[in-house]
Every structure is written in C-alpha cells, then in structure tokens.
C-alpha cells in the first residue's frame, strides 16, 4: 500500500493551490515528483493514489509518468547514473564509455547494483553537447568523460 507521508501531504497542498480546482490534473507532474521524492521511485500504487487525488485514471498517470525518463517506475540505487547517448556524445565514443561503466559496476545498462548503490541508465541528450561526453549522477553533471575520469568518479562515491 502506498500512502503519502505528512511532509508529502504538505507539499501536495502547496502544489494544488496553484491550479483551479477543475484543472487540478495539472498538478500531476508535481505529485509524481513528490511520490518519487518520498519513496525513491513511483510505484503502481503511487500512480493509483495520484489518480484518485486528481480524478484521473491510473492508466493516464502511468502514461504521463512513462513519458518522462526522470520518473523511475522501479526502485533505483542511491546514485542514478544517466548516460547521454545522443549525437555529440555518440561521436565522442559514449558507447564504449557506457560499456566501461557497466563493466566496472558489474551490471547491464538499466540495472541496479546488488548493493543498491548505483543504477545505470541511458539518457537521450543532457543538453551539454559542448562538453560531451556527459553523464549525470543524481543532480550533478560530469563532463568531458574518459574511462579514467569515470573510474575516479565512481570510486569517490563508494
């Protein structure tokens, strides 16, 4: 069962007043974010709860949630690594860098390490082409990546 915590409820209240009551469905992105903040990911139960709050079908909530890659629908590790694979990074060999990272963490892309420390994901464009190749770990950008630099960063997080 999913239930919003007290802190989340306060946050939801703040978000809902931003929209007229008949358009409360506009708060869907905010509520998804709050649910994720609380539990680390948005579970199916959380989507149903958000649907109930905003008079939306759970399917609609899932549809919105799945559109954005930054909402996680499965539990993720403490650090979520988002690896840019778009044009500029691609030209600068991000494929091999991604493979290197996966090998170092001993997981496949899309998976989470057994110790729940790292989740490795592909991301379409992090809007940082000028400093490609780029990855993002939680809220920090790491740019001009090389295998050595990646090793260094990951080691520093362990």
């Amino acid at each position: 069962m999913f239930a919003f915590s007290e802190t989340s409820e306060k946050e939801i209240e703040k978000q809902l007043v931003k929209y007229p009551p008949e358009r409360k469905k506009s708060a869907i992105l905010a509520l998804l974010r709050i649910a994720q903040q609380q539990n680390g990911y948005v579970s199916a139960e959380a989507m149903e709860e958000i649907g109930r709050r905003l008079d939306l079908s759970p399917a609609y909530v899932e549809s919105v949630c799945s559109f954005y890659t930054m909402y996680y629908t499965r539990p993720v590790g403490k650090y979520v690594i988002m690896f840019c694979i778009n044009v500029s990074c691609h030209l600068l060999d991000c494929d091999n860098l991604l493979e290197h990272t996966a090998k170092k963490l001993n997981i496949q892309v899309g998976e989470t390490t057994a110790d729940k420390m790292f989740t490795l994901l592909r991301e379409e464009c992090l809007a940082e082409c000028s400093r490609a190749p780029v990855m993002r770990i939680n809220n920090d950008y790491h740019v001009n990546l090389t295998p050595q630099k990646i090793d260094q960063i990951l080691d520093s997080l362990k």
Binding site: L56, S57, A59, Y60, E62, S63, S66, F67
Partner: peptide
C-alpha cells in the same frame, strides 16, 4: 471517457 487505454513510453 474512462481513459483505460493510453500510450505509454515515447
């Protein structure tokens, strides 16, 4: 008007 069927992912 049930929005039971949706497009997911992109």
């Amino acid at each position: 008007q049930e929005t039971a069927l949706v497009m997911v992912n992109r």
